[in-house]
Design a protein around this nucleic acid. Structure first.
Lengths: 321, 321
DNA sequence: TAGCGAACTGAATTTTTATTCATTGCTGCA
DNA sequence: TGCAGCAATGAATAAAAATTCAGTTCGCTA
């Protein structure tokens, strides 16, 4: 009885507050109950499930997948983009766009952005990026050397300078190939002052934007010159490499894979990468499933931006519509 | 696209706020978005129906009926009590209990309570009322004379003094019959100083508790003496009286009905009643349907306390379970 | 291509809400 | 019957959220 009376009162207050939009103080005045008590009764309404708050997921957003990814892989954030069809082109576009939005809304002032230069997703991101309005400024550091092939060198340079320009930052180029022809060649290149200067910046990177590579000839790698010989690729596979970030390879369980290649690569190391405040992995597509999963297991990435199909597969669930 | 990205962000923020229970400032810190913007995005989430708040009505409460009554009859409040079965006894108990709770939660300090003395519902209310804890104090004024029959006189007196006691107030009794035997008798009674004093208080009543009577011999009226003769009742009916408050009669549409009886009744007038801040009508039961409706249409009551069956009938809907 | 107005933004401020604190009455137990 | 512990309350205060304000940017129009 008394219980029912109290429930009635709580229900009425709930109605006034949530439906009629009255302030607690107004309700308090109407009912001659102190505002403190109104607040307490509203909390009771929560506890007793008299108010129920549901989130109505808008089309094209996938909070479940995102939460799944966050929890399953211990990510700080996960962003799952809507995507028309499960093919490279569509995915690149979706993921790049999402990444651009992410960057533009969460970039800090005075942030030092590290960007890996060989990723189609990152290219797309920069393409969809609008000049950042607010006084967001920073430095943009290229954390992976360019490609031997001059045409892709240009891509890498473009990526870094464009991003710097859009964010009002100072570009810091890494004027060296991503893969030197030999250990000695690498040593020689590192002797260069500019290269040195940029590599010294690696430890200052606060936000790293990286693609995630699969160990197999990707379209871009294939067309952009003979970075690795088929033999080298085979060797990588044999030593268990499943994917890479900035050409630093890791196995299916995420453990780093050291091969002689390491000594020829000019890029941030996985350890240096972990020093960044936020490492954002941007990748999607069935071809990369295993590589992405490996990167997540290795904990190289704090934030993953991907598409709904890939997200679904990473979680072993069917993708939403 | 941009739209989708934004929706995703809003959804994520909504999730953090409502599901994970984070403060706006925490979200703001995590996402590097100002608290002001978080607040604005959450409002957008409301507008766009991404958050949906539903009220889960607990068993035994009837906000729909209450809202219906409020809106249909322009009431300040309506309280609909749960009630086992649609019979007098059950209803009296439910309504009395609800009224007691109402009184105990919304009584102001220094309130002047007017109470009509001939109502079974009010008796029940006082019976279920606990002594008011908090320093609620006031005056309790009897706004309708007692009954000729001494045994009910006691009831009326009891009602007023008990209520005064429970609310820590000063009782102000009306030591006169509700209906004088003649106009002259009434005049004589009014000459009495105590009666005068009490009647002068009528205009100070801030909270009036009144029953609503049907024009027909109710059980109580019937057993409590010959207040009205069958002829008088017939006369009332003939002049269109449908119900009364404190023996002041009104027609089905709420307009006051004047009969010679008026000049013999010793009670607050309908006009004086309207001067009270809050007039609480307490009544239920099929027998009183028409009277209650008439009282509501007449606007004599600001707050109605009734049972679910009566409420349902007043609204012309079937009662909830 | 300059100028105008609408739309956004973050800092500061105001408004609203939650919580602390001191008090009080009640309950159960000695 | 008296007292300790507990629950509930309102006033005061702290915390959180909404809004104002001032400054920008951006898209149009002239």
């Amino acid at each position: 009885m008394a219980r029912t009376n109290e429930l009635r009162l709580i229900t009425r207050i709930t109605q006034m507050y949530y439906l009629e939009g009255l302030k607690q103080s107004q309700i308090s005045a109407i009912l001659n109950i102190s505002q403190a008590t109104i607040s307490r009764l509203l909390k009771r309404a929560m506890d007793e499930n008299i108010v129920r708050i549901t989130i109505n997921v808008p089309r094209g957003t996938f909070p479940d997948l995102e939460t799944g990814l966050r929890e399953r892989f211990g990510l700080k954030e996960a962003i799952v983009a809507e995507c028309g069809e499960d093919r490279e082109e569509s995915i690149l576009s979706a993921v790049g766009d999402a990444a651009a939005h992410f960057l533009s809304t969460t970039l800090n002032d005075r942030e030092v952005i590290g960007i890996s230069s060989w990723s189609a997703s990152l290219l797309r991101m920069v393409d969809s990026l609008h000049p950042l309005k607010r006084v967001k400024a920073a430095r943009v550091v290229q954390i992976l050397g360019g490609m031997g092939n001059p045409s892709v060198q240009v891509h890498a340079t473009h990526l870094t300078t464009r991003l710097a320009q859009l964010t009002g930052a100072q570009p810091q180029l890494l004027s060296a190939p991503g893969v030197a022809s030999s250990i000695e060649a690498r040593r020689a290149l590192l002797a260069d002052g500019f290269v040195q200067a940029t590599m010294d910046e690696f430890r200052d990177v606060s936000l790293a934007l990286v693609g995630i590579g699969a160990v197999e000839p990707s379209r871009m790698l294939a067309t952009s010159g003979n970075v690795f010989t088929p033999e080298e690729l085979q060797e990588l596979k044999d030593s268990g490499a499943e994917g890479d970030i900035c050409l630093r390879f890791f196995a299916a369980d995420g453990t780093p894979v050291r091969t002689p290649l390491d000594d020829r690569v000019i890029s941030i190391s996985l350890d240096e990468l972990k020093g960044a405040d936020r490492v954002v992995g941007i990748a999607g597509g069935a071809r990369k499933d295993r590589a992405i999963k490996a990167a997540l297991l290795g904990g190289y990435v704090d934030i993953l931006i991907t598409d709904k199909f890939t997200a679904g597969r990473l979680l072993g669930e069917p993708a939403g519509t």
